[in-house]
Design a protein around this nucleic acid. Sequence first.
DNA 1: AAGACGAAAGTGGTTGA
DNA 2: TCAACAACTTTCGTCTT
Length: 322
Amino acid sequence: MATSRVDETSREDVIPETPQLTCSDCGGTDVVRDNEKGELICATCGLVLSDHRIDTGPEWRAFTSDERDTRARTGAPSSYALHDKGLSTMIDWRDRDSKGSAFSAKQRAQIYRLRKWQIRTRVHSSLDRNLAQAMTEIDRLSSQLGLSAGLKEHAARMYRKLIAGRLWRSRSIDATAAAAVYAACRHRGSPRSIEEIAEHSRESKKKISAHYRMLVTKLKIRMPISSPENYVPRFISDLNLPMEVQQITMEILEQAKKVRGLVSGRDPRGLAAAAIYIASIMSDNRVTQRDISRISGVTEVTIRNRYKELVSKLELTMALYP
DNA sequence: AAGACGAAAGTGGTTGA
DNA sequence: TCAACAACTTTCGTCTT
């Protein structure tokens, strides 16, 4: 058998290099990736270049070539997002042995029994059937929402924890999967609202939020309260506003947090939207309330109410920013 | 004519008796 | 379980740019 010698340098190709990217807005070449949120961000002006990135790299890191050699392996990575973590064995359906010759009748019968039991134990236990369906759903939601592999794994792990503890009988799999995705996003501070998730789910917003509340209590997770700041970069980018606006928006929100009753109990998206509206006027990059409303998913009326509140309570002057 | 404004009525979720 | 309640939405007429 002829073997071709593998050139040492070709190993470098195992880990693909990120192609050089330039910012479409300011032309800067310093583009950083936020794998957690699946976003590509220009370090110069802060423009989000792409928020639906797929992380194509391996899930481990290697710093030296030795390390890379020892960590290299074949097969797909083990993943919580597959119902069997991608680790179970398959018995081939062909009645042939490893050399390709046919089985005897006795062997065939034996293999048939093995196959039958393998299938029964692997996917056909009710728990695994449940997981298999849930993982497909989590996978589907994650890709439609453009979530990173890390977030998807996080959601998958939460789902497993629920099922493993038998804390979760006779509940909608789709709603629980959606709840796990929402919980993962919130836990990692990556901004997705329940509405956005419900849009891609078969279940209603109401059902998903009910399942989410159960999930949080059952798993005893402490959720960081979602803050308006988390939504700002995405909204700013969707509205094609410059970095300047984001800075002013953040300053406004910073101030707002100091005033009692201005932030708590309010829809964080409405607050983010209102602050962006004010900042857009102050920096002379005016956008309409309707546009912000469309991007943020809150109504113009709410944006108006929040922005009136912010202006009066913070004693902001709507004059152009110095 | 588009955008901003605000009143009024309706909706769904939370809270506390 | 039910009523009270706050936040938010929908709708619509009016004012401003």
